[in-house]
Design a protein around this nucleic acid. Structure first.
Length: 401
DNA sequence: AGGTATTCACATGAAACTATTCTCTGAGTTAGG
DNA sequence: TAACTCAGAGAATAGTTTCATGTGAATACCTGT
């Protein structure tokens, strides 16, 4: 027990972090660098809310990790502070539409909103229109400005048509005392184009575009945050630059840069190193990549896992690194029999293979072998040591051996 | 030799089926007046 | 009597199967020199 204590103590004492939370993505710093232009633009759009006027519906878009959510949440806090001083009734709710089971249907979003307004919806459900009336009643209970931030708004549209958004934008005409506005956030740049024109025009009364950070800007951000997150002198020369460079390669994703730095720190800590060096970043990068893939593999349904296992086994047992659809299906059938699982049709397995291709775990391209048919040529797209881990996960999850 | 035609082994699409999950209804329960 | 609960009916959805059609190029088969 003494040993354990020692380890814990040394961890406490030698931690290279002072506050790891600062590197996390939910953290909102007091100042946001290199987004001044966007923030002032946003501020002038939403400022009328302080005078209890309806603000224009607003639409933000830009790639992931460009600070959209961060900026709007920052402004929300500022605005709420101000309005509290002024004693104005202003509510801003943030909903992430991507979260499954919370906000991925019209009904769920509404009931979530109602809950946030202080009402409640029975868990067994109500008709959608009565949820609407309830929502409206709650809004009308007192004069107020209500702003809804819908993050990843593209998700709801592809799941539940744009009717919902249309209804929301139309809601104002039914309200007397309250005002409602919508702020949509999306990282799909083409999202607006395949929207119903009526919705499009009312939703994007104002638009703000967030462009990616470049490497220099990323460096500033990282430096600023690492000053508070790490003890001084922990980061060696070139580390920040390298993190920024990695992330800049991925369309300037600041979230990724921060994750990279944080994980590098964790790795350094685990290795009992006092400093973060460049090698740690490489390790972190690899780890992130690996974790992402392993996570996908683990959460995939059994039939998908079986298909993947069939592919991996086949490639293992053969000398070549490419195999074809037919072989995969044959081996897949054998596997199914072995663990007495029902086999899917070849049609479906073909689709599953295509999905793994999309996920980037395998490379599958359609080739024609002339007289000998047309099929997908399949290769693994990840390196050997990850494959070993994938195999382990698959064997575990399928109870093989 | 050069040009079609055929053929293979799936790919790709659409419609139909099914098992889950959601949404909604109306009866029963609670509680406020 | 209005408001809430809740089980179960009915609708919507995701995952599959069935049926049908499409594809690219190696090979087979002509054709005329």
């Amino acid at each position: 027990m003494k040993e354990v204590d020692k380890i814990f103590n040394s961890f406490l004492k030698d931690s290279i972090f002072t506050n790891k939370f600062i590197l996390q993505t939910h953290y909102i710093p007091e100042t946001i660098h290199h987004r001044e232009k966007e923030i002032t633009q946003l501020a002038s759009i939403i400022a009328p809310a302080l005078r209890m006027e309806k603000i224009s519906n607003l639409f933000l878009y830009g790639k992931t990790g460009t600070g959209k959510t961060l900026s709007i949440l920052y402004l929300r806090d500022q605005l709420l502070n101000k309005s509290k001083q002024q004693n104005k009734s202003l509510t801003i709710e943030y909903i992430n539409c991507k979260l499954k089971k919370v906000a991925d249907t019209e009904y769920r979003i509404l009931s979530e909103l109602i809950r946030k307004l202080g009402g409640n919806v029975p868990s067994t459900g109500l008709p959608t229109d009565s949820v609407y009336t309830k929502f409206i009643e709650l809004l009308e209970s007192r004069p107020q400005v209500f702003i809804i931030i819908l993050d990843e708004i593209d998700h709801i549209v592809q799941k539940i048509s744009d009717n919902f958004l249309y209804n929301l934008t139309r809601l104002n005409s039914e309200l007397n005392k309250a005002q409602i506005s919508i702020i949509g956030i999306s990282n799909d740049l083409t999202f607006l184009d395949n929207l119903d024109p009526r919705v499009k025009s009312s939703l994007s009364e104002e638009e703000v575009v967030f462009s990616p950070y470049n490497a220099v800007q990323l460096q500033d951000i990282l430096r600023e945050r690492s000053k508070k997150a790490f003890k001084s002198g922990v980061i060696s020369e070139g580390v920040i630059e390298k993190c920024a460079a990695y992330a800049a390669r991925e369309h300037g994703d600041a979230r990724r840069a921060l994750d990279l730095l944080r994980i590098s720190g964790e790795i350094a800590e685990r290795d009992r190193d006092k400093k973060i060096v460049i090698e740690h970043i490489d390790k972190a990068n690899e780890k992130m990549e690996r974790d992402k893939i392993l996570d996908i593999v683990e959460t995939e349904p059994k039939q998908f896992q079986l298909t993947l296992l069939a592919i991996i086994n086949l490639i293992d047992s053969k000398k070549y690194d490419k195999i074809f659809t037919g072989e995969v299906y044959e081996h897949y059938q054998q596997l199914c029999q072995k663990i007495s699982f029902e086999t899917l049709t070849q049609r479906r397995v073909g689709d599953i293979i295509a999905e793994f291709d999309m996920l980037g775990i395998i490379n599958a391209k359609v080739v024609s072998k002339g007289r000998y048919g047309r099929m997908r040529e399949i290769k693994l797209a990840v390196n050997q040591n990850i494959i070993e881990k994938i195999k382990k996960i698959l064997y575990d999850s399928l109870n093989l051996n």
